[in-house]
Design a protein around this nucleic acid. Structure first.
Lengths: 184, 184
DNA sequence: TGTACATCAGTGAACGCGCGTTCACTGATGTAC
DNA sequence: TGTACATCAGTGAACGCGCGTTCACTGATGTAC
């Protein structure tokens, strides 16, 4: 029932979901709308995805994989520390601005267990390097502070996405909260 | 079509929605389930609420009104400043722990315009006193920092609600981020 | 006190609608001999 | 080269289901005269 991950029709369906989901949220995203917009029959959807949940998880995963790749490449080779953290956050926020699904992914509630699990995987993934940075900066309460940093960054990403552009003052406020800890 | 705000049946319907919405989120909350759980006929629902959106907005409003009342009473008479901010946050988090709808309200996406508007009203309301506190603490970028403080507090509220109890380390991490600004 | 009427919360069957999913089928392409 | 079969993406009508909303009606309570 599920075909190869890079089949053109499968990618087209994901692309359509990215556009439609950005408009009304993933919770309201219907298979009817997706197949109509993609100009394929309804049955074709189930050639490429087991069910609706499988489709939503795929959308989540693609969003996150892309974003993670840009953050990694932006900070490749850097030592853990304040400047790497700063660069990571900037890369993440810049990446979110170019991803249509940002608001839908970061803002939607995750009551489906499968999606909740996917989100948890993502958050654990992000926490690890942030903890290393904070540790190098001498911050106490590593994982707790990392969680708060993620919460603030996600909030900024949503705000910028609604503003359809960067909000430098908001980014500065975050850096201010973190910078003091560096003892600059 | 809408009756007095404190009619017993109306309150019972809101109570049921608070319980059911806490389980599966407000997006999935169906009128069928509400009237069945409340042991009233389906038509009775529309005696008390114009439509589903009206009902959801009422649930939002009641949640927020209660919470706001406890925060206000916890900080009554205090001057703006660090300790008032600290008390406000603690009161908010403690209040969230006793409210079943916390996760559903704070975590649900708000794609319905009417609910989005209600949430915006709430956030503006909360921002004002926080800005006064931050100003007294000598923090720059008042409204931006206030937004980040709200984002962190909401994140902690959700985490504590899932843990069904306070998470002191997470609260401490937030205070650490803010405390330095006070110059203690 | 008795009668007539108004008000109002409550009832539940019925409505149309869009949803996710299924399934028997098509037709093109690849493989075997 | 020609024939037979296997594979696989794609099709679209049909399904059952639960949803939000409507509406003609009931029955109790309050008010007027």
């Amino acid at each position: 029932v599920t075909t190869s991950a890079d089949h053109p029709t499968r990618l087209a369906l994901l692309d359509v979901g990215t556009q439609l989901g950005a408009r009304s949220g993933l919770a309201r995203l219907s298979i009817n709308d997706v197949v109509q917009e993609a100009n394929v029959a309804k049955g074709t959807f189930y050639v490429h995805f087991k069910d609706r949940t499988d489709y939503l998880v795929s959308l989540h995963r693609r969003f996150h994989d892309r974003l993670f790749a840009t953050v990694v490449s932006a900070t490749a080779g850097l030592q853990p520390g304040a400047s790497r953290l700063q660069l990571s956050i900037a890369a993440y926020l810049d990446g979110c601005l170019t991803e249509p699904l940002t608001r839908a992914i970061l803002f939607d509630a995750h009551y489906e267990p499968a999606i909740q699990a996917e989100v948890n995987r993502r958050n654990e993934f992000a926490t690890q390097p942030i903890c290393a940075d904070l540790d190098a900066m001498g911050v106490p309460l590593l994982s707790e502070t990392a969680r708060l940093v993620i919460a603030m960054t996600v909030d900024i990403a949503i705000a910028e996405h609604e503003a359809t552009g960067p909000l430098p003052l908001l980014r500065s406020a975050l850096m201010e909260l973190l910078k003091l800890r560096q003892g600059i």
